[in-house]
């Protein structure tokens, strides 16, 4: 029983990381209605930007400034991918299958570029000092980095909630999500909205990548693995739903970490997929239906 507090903390950390990926993924999926396989790779882009700034170029930057640059870079790359690849395809009325295949191509290409630039070896962003202090909370250990992960995911969901509810941009995004055709008719520049959504979604993925980099480490192929978990969380929570995705991520985090309490850890991924299948069979719309 004495391991329960630690399992709760582990679940919350995992849930927060999944949430960051799911939030960006859901935002983009909800707006564009295609399964963006390239979403995870922006996590790697954000992480490698920080890696380059801090560990290779050794710029005398504050760590937070470096992270901010990493987040913006990831967002910018997401925006560029939309402008260069997805926008021309959308203009040609390409189906979502074509867009998905294009995004798969983008993943392969971007991962290869990252591997060429930084080698495919595993690296860590950890700088030794910052973020490594560990606190003891009710019998569970949590590091500063992990606290930042949890706070970030709560902040991001709150910020997205605020934007969706109180800003004109948020309302425009909502309109595009409901019906792109009608949104265009009433004078919304839908392509510009979608590009901005790509920027925001990819920036959030970048943040997730950076946090993962500090917590566990980075490699060019990290994106696919975390995207997989992010999409499972999205399906559990409700595809395209902001709060649903957030909730789904934590459900997944708890199920995975408590699932291996009594059985071997090798079943962790299997448990995630079993939960996914149960949801697909019993409640395909997810916890919160959009």
């Amino acid at each position: 029983m004495d391991i329960v507090p630690q399992l709760v903390v582990n679940s919350v950390i995992a849930g927060s990381l999944y949430a960051l990926i799911t939030l960006g993924f859901n935002l983009i999926y909800g707006t564009t209605k295609f399964f963006n396989l390239a979403h995870g790779v922006f996590a790697a882009c954000g992480a490698y930007t920080v890696f380059w700034l801090v560990k290779i170029a050794n710029l005398p930057l504050n760590l937070f400034v470096a992270c901010a640059i990493g987040v913006i870079c990831a967002g910018f790359l997401g925006w560029m991918l939309d402008v260069l690849v997805f926008l021309p395809l959308r203009k040609r009325k390409a189906s979502s299958m074509v867009l998905m295949v294009a995004s798969l191509g983008a993943v392969t290409a971007i991962q290869a570029v990252l591997a060429i630039l930084f080698t495919s070896q595993f690296q860590t962003l950890e700088t030794g000092g910052a973020g490594s202090y560990a606190y003891d909370v009710l019998g569970a250990i949590i590091t500063e980095t992990q606290i930042i992960i949890i706070v970030s995911s709560v902040c991001v969901v709150a910020m997205l909630g605020y934007i969706a509810r109180y800003t004109t941009f948020g309302k425009a995004v909502e309109a595009v999500r409901d019906d792109e055709e009608i949104a265009r008719m009433v004078g919304i520049n839908t392509n510009r909205i979608i590009s901005k959504v790509f920027f925001i979604g990819s920036a959030i993925a970048g943040l997730a990548g950076i946090l993962i980099g500090f917590d566990t480490g980075i490699e060019p192929i990290m994106g696919m693995n975390i995207l997989l978990k992010g999409t499972i969380a999205a399906i559990i929570g409700g595809v395209g739903s902001l709060y649903g995705g957030f909730l789904g991520a934590f459900v997944l985090g708890f199920v995975e970490n408590f699932g291996i309490w009594k059985i071997s850890g090798e079943w962790k991924d299997a448990i995630a997929f079993i939960v996914l299948i149960i949801f697909l069979l019993v409640r395909p719309q997810g916890i919160i239906k959009r």
């Binding site: 004495d2 582990n10 993962i212 309490w261 962790k268």
Partner: peptide
């Protein structure tokens, strides 16, 4: 032993069990 597939990056709960 706690086994894990090669794609695993989060070992916290396995380590928590072993530590206990």
């Amino acid at each position: 032993k706690e086994e894990f597939p090669s794609t695993t990056t989060d070992f916290r709960s396995m380590l928590t069990k072993l530590k206990a």
